[in-house]
Amino acid sequence: MKKVKDQAIWFILPSAIGFIIFFIFPFIISLGYAFLDKPVGGQFVWFQNFIGLFQNSSYQKALRNTAIFMGLCVPLNILCSLGISMVIKNVKRYKQLFTLVFLIPLVIPSGSMVFFWKMMFANDGFINGIIVNLGGSAIHWLETGWALFVIVLIFIWKNLGYNIVLLIAGISSIPKDYYEAASMDGASKWQSFKFITLPYLVPTFVLTTLMSVINSFKVFKEIYLITGDYPHESIYMLQHFMNNMFSSLNYQKLTTATTVLVIGITLITMGLFKIERRVAE
């Protein structure tokens, strides 16, 4: 027993050393800044930054918008990818080809991707061209309430493939016998979906939810490039807030915001694991 433990230590050591230097230290340092009044030569101010942050109207707006965005995107993304996965599962040929197609958005360089979506939704872009040709009047996609719709679309376009792969994997791991047994008992297709597929996919849902949340922060890079630093107020997100804090050297406010964010995501993660465990029981 003792020997096993020692050996495990040797395996974990390379990763742990690097992880502590390049991840734990930065993590702690950046948390530490949240309690200082300025990044260089700052004074310890306890929770003053947190109080200031929650009173900040821009932050409140960003927080609210991000909540709306996530509340919209994450379930929508899971629903869409679940639908498509079920369809892919039911086709016989070209399964892998179709899966690959949905992975393509992951490889397109962000430069071309931004270019494409900009050209699509600009005021004089492709979609407005079609609308005007059909006799309608052009819509300012990125400067009105439509902007939220546009970024939800981009988010789903970019992340659907990721979820589809996870879900297909999850679906195909459900033993076929269950379905056969159910159809013998006279269950309809809908019933077997509801009572077999959905419950067995819960661990996968947990995974996709967590990955969607993380990925939604990654896709912001592109959204930022498409809509600019100061987009229409309905899509002013936490990521905009944090980016702008960075460019105005307000590092303590930035780290305060990320600390709150990390606490939030930690709670969500813990909640998800708890749900998973309960379903598993």
Binding site: M1, V4, K5, Q7, A8, I9, W10, F11, I12, S15, F19, F23, I24, P26, F27, I29, S30, Y33, P39, I214, F217, Q239, M242, N243, M245, F246, Y251, L254, T255, T258, L261, V262, I265, T266, T269
Partner: peptide, 30 residues
């Protein structure tokens, strides 16, 4: 190592790995 490790706090340590992974880039750049 995480698979074969028998340390009783290893799940907590693993949780730290996940949480740190969630940190946004801007915050750790400095």
């Amino acid at each position: 190592a995480f698979t074969i490790w028998k340390w009783k706090h290893k799940e907590k340590f693993f949780f730290v790995y996940i949480i740190v992974m969630l940190m946004p880039l801007q915050a750790v750049l400095v």
